[in-house]
Amino acid sequence: MSEFEPKIVAFVCNWCTYAGADLAGTSRIKYAQNVRIVRFPCTGRIDFMLLLKAFEEGADGIIVSGCHPADCHYTSGNYHARRRWMVFKDLLDFIGIDSRRIVFSWVSAAEGAKWAHLVNDTVSEIRNLGPMKEYKNLENVSSNKIGELIND
C-alpha cells in the first residue's frame, strides 16, 4: 500500500497570503505539493461553510491564512475572521471533528518562506493524523436498502 498523501485545501486572502505563496514560488522555495490554493478577496470572506465543503469534497486538512493583524487590505476583515474561527473551532471540537485539521495562520506577502514552512508542517501533521475518515465514512448518497429506509 502506498503511503497516505494528504489532500490539503488552502483558503487564502488575495492580498497577503496569496502573494506570499506567489513569492515562495518565484523564490523557488520547494514545498509539499499536497496543497490546493483557493484565493479569496479577504479572510473575512471565508465562510465556515466553505471549510465544511472542503472536507466533504475529500480534503484531509485545511489551511486558512490571511494578512497579519493591522495589515488587512480592508482594514478589519482578518479581525472579524479571527473571531469567527475561534468560535468555529470550538464548535468543531464539541461535535468531535478534529480541529487540528484546520490550521489558521497569518502569512504576509513578504513571507514566502513562512508559507512554505506552513504547508510543509501542515502536510506532515495531517500525514500523522491520517485520512479524514470521519467524513469519508459518512456516505452521502442515500441507500435504498430496506431497513435503512427507516431513518435510524
Partner: peptide, 30 residues
C-alpha cells in the same frame, strides 16, 4: 469565555461576530 458577551441582556448588544477587539486572543493562529 473568549469575548465576555452574552446575548439577550441588552437592547444595544453588539453581535460578537460582527465586531472585534484588537486584543482578541490569537494563540491558535500560526
Amino acid at each position: 469565555i473568549h469575548f465576555g458577551d452574552e446575548p439577550g441582556m441588552k437592547a444595544d448588544y453588539k453581535y460578537p461576530l460582527s465586531h472585534y477587539k484588537l486584543e482578541d486572543k490569537e494563540n491558535f493562529i500560526r
